[in-house]
């Protein structure tokens, strides 16, 4: 069952990704992106990361993508149907780089990892599942976030604040 779901999600995610890159209009790209994000969220669920899956859908597929949509509509980009793909030599070069990247990542994730990664890391996974049962999906993330990583967490808050101020300042029309 899990394997079937994984394959399903993976296919949708990959198809959405191609759609993002290849579709001619920004709105279509955006919708493909939402599909990809949702499938990835599904894969999170398969990996027992329920909290992250929820955030992925709420924050990413919900808030951020809507923000993109707002901007697209605000700038009235929908009419710009002109294909903005780069063809010719440049796309060939891009494919070469993509191939190289795939090679390096494949070697890193698959070729070089003949131990460990192929199994499921049963002990760690079991402990994680036990913690989820005990503290709940949110609690298992919240606990280290408010203890060991509290400084980073607070800095994240600061970053968001700065980003908001920056966004306001940048987007404000110059008088």
């Amino acid at each position: 069952m899990t394997e079937i779901l994984f394959v399903l999600f993976a296919v949708v995610a990959l198809g959405g990704a191609f759609g993002v890159v290849l579709s001619r209009t920004p709105v279509a790209s955006l919708l493909f992106m939402v599909a990809t994000l949702a499938s990835v969220a599904g894969i999170y669920v398969l990996f027992e990361a329920h909290f992250l899956a929820a955030i992925q859908v709420l924050v990413y597929a919900g808030a951020i993508m809507v923000l993109f949509l707002f901007v697209i509509m605000l700038l009235n980009l929908g009419h710009d149907y002109r294909a903005d793909l780069k063809y010719g030599l440049w796309s060939l070069l891009a494919l070469v780089v993509a191939g190289l990247t795939a090679g390096v990542l494949g070697q890193a994730f698959w070729g070089a990892s003949d131990t460990g990664f192929r199994g499921d890391g049963a002990a760690v996974a079991a402990a994680l599942d036990a913690a989820v049962r005990e503290q709940g999906a949110a609690g298992v993330i919240a606990e280290p976030l408010f203890t060991d990583y509290v400084v980073a967490f607070e800095l994240m808050g600061l970053l968001l604040l700065v980003a908001i101020v920056a966004a306001v300042v940048l987007a404000k029309p110059k008088t």
Binding site: A17, F18, V21, V40, L85, K86, W90, L95, V97, T101
Partner: peptide, 14 residues
């Protein structure tokens, strides 16, 4: 990895 490569392609060609 595949998603990343596709993203990279998008950044380069669009």
């Amino acid at each position: 990895a595949a998603l990343f490569v596709i993203g990279t392609l998008g950044v380069i060609v669009r």
